[in-house]
Amino acid sequence: MANIATQRIQRELNEVAKFDEAQKKAISIEMVNGSLLDLIGKITGPPDTPYEGGIFNLEIKIPSTYPFNPPKMRFTTKIWHPNISSVTGAICLDILQDQWAAALTIRTVLLSLQALLAAAEPDDPQDAVVAKQYKENHELFVQTAKHWTSVYARPENDKEKWSNHDFDAKIAKLREVMGCDEHQARVALSSNNWDLDRATQSML
């Protein structure tokens, strides 16, 4: 079975290189340590979304039963999105679960994930905290998602113009008060709608 999986993945890797998205660097797939069953996928954030300009990495594990069973994927770049866990990077997407079909490919999954970044489904969330913010305070959700994209997914030379000085100041204050690291402070504030008092309480 593993033989079928590796043959299929080799064919997919060859095909991906021919598509426009790969030429434009919108999506890419590469092997880890020469293994066809252990891949890294990259997608760029779609235009006119809070993820624009970000490059998001995904861990892709190919089961020996591929393509009859779906690949296991998760985001390794931290992201603020209702259908992706802000903690583990786990993804809620039907084609990675019960709607998988052998005709689907890694490329079609990566394109579906790009579409998910452009059109979240907060009523079927992977991250309930993010989904709640998305539905109840959408503008703050957009600002938070942009902030996470700027910090975790944008190239180093592009971060400054996207920084949010109000958020940065609150993160610095919370770190000072609680003695936590920057990411812990960011998570606490993001999860509490950037209310410094509530974020502090959540960490006690």
Results as ranks from 00 to 15, higher is better:
105 T>R: 12
31 M>P: 05
146 K>N: 00
10 Q>G: 05
10 Q>C: 00
122 P>W: 11
89 G>T: 13
130 V>G: 05
195 D>Q: 10
47 P>K: 10
171 I>M: 10
79 I>D: 03
153 A>K: 03
40 I>K: 11
108 T>E: 07
124 D>Q: 12
39 L>N: 10
178 M>H: 04
175 R>S: 05
181 D>M: 05
59 E>Y: 06
122 P>R: 10
66 Y>N: 08
43 I>F: 01
101 A>K: 14
62 I>W: 01
22 A>P: 12
68 F>L: 11
137 N>Q: 11
195 D>Y: 07
197 D>N: 15
63 P>S: 10
124 D>L: 05
101 A>S: 12
23 Q>G: 01
104 L>M: 14
150 S>L: 00
198 R>Q: 14
12 E>H: 05
10 Q>P: 01
72 K>Q: 12
58 L>H: 04
27 I>Y: 11
59 E>H: 10
193 N>K: 14
168 D>Y: 08
130 V>N: 03
113 L>I: 15
144 T>M: 07
162 W>Y: 14
28 S>Y: 01
19 F>L: 13
176 E>C: 09
197 D>P: 01
19 F>E: 13
78 K>Y: 10
147 H>M: 04
114 Q>M: 12
84 I>W: 13
122 P>L: 13
164 N>Q: 06
8 R>W: 12
200 T>V: 02
61 K>I: 05
204 L>P: 00
29 I>A: 09
187 V>N: 00
18 K>W: 06
76 T>K: 06
189 L>T: 13
87 V>P: 02
181 D>Y: 00
22 A>I: 07
120 A>C: 07
189 L>I: 13
24 K>L: 09
110 L>G: 01
149 T>K: 10
78 K>Q: 06
20 D>K: 14
113 L>W: 02
29 I>L: 15
130 V>C: 10
7 Q>A: 13
124 D>T: 12
57 N>S: 15
56 F>M: 03
23 Q>L: 02
179 G>C: 01
110 L>E: 07
81 H>S: 06
55 I>F: 08
93 L>N: 08
26 A>S: 13
40 I>L: 12
69 N>W: 01
36 L>F: 15
12 E>T: 04
58 L>E: 05
66 Y>D: 08
164 N>E: 00
166 D>Y: 13
60 I>K: 00
133 Q>E: 11
146 K>P: 00
154 R>A: 10
106 I>G: 15
178 M>G: 06
181 D>P: 03
138 H>C: 07
149 T>L: 14
176 E>G: 06
81 H>L: 05
133 Q>I: 10
122 P>C: 11
105 T>L: 07
159 K>D: 04
24 K>W: 05
81 H>A: 05
67 P>I: 00
158 D>E: 15
173 K>C: 09
190 S>L: 03
41 G>N: 09
14 N>S: 14
145 A>G: 09
158 D>P: 09
161 K>E: 06
85 S>P: 08
158 D>N: 11
127 D>E: 14
45 G>F: 03
56 F>T: 02
139 E>F: 02
28 S>N: 05
144 T>Q: 03
167 F>H: 09
18 K>E: 14
81 H>P: 13
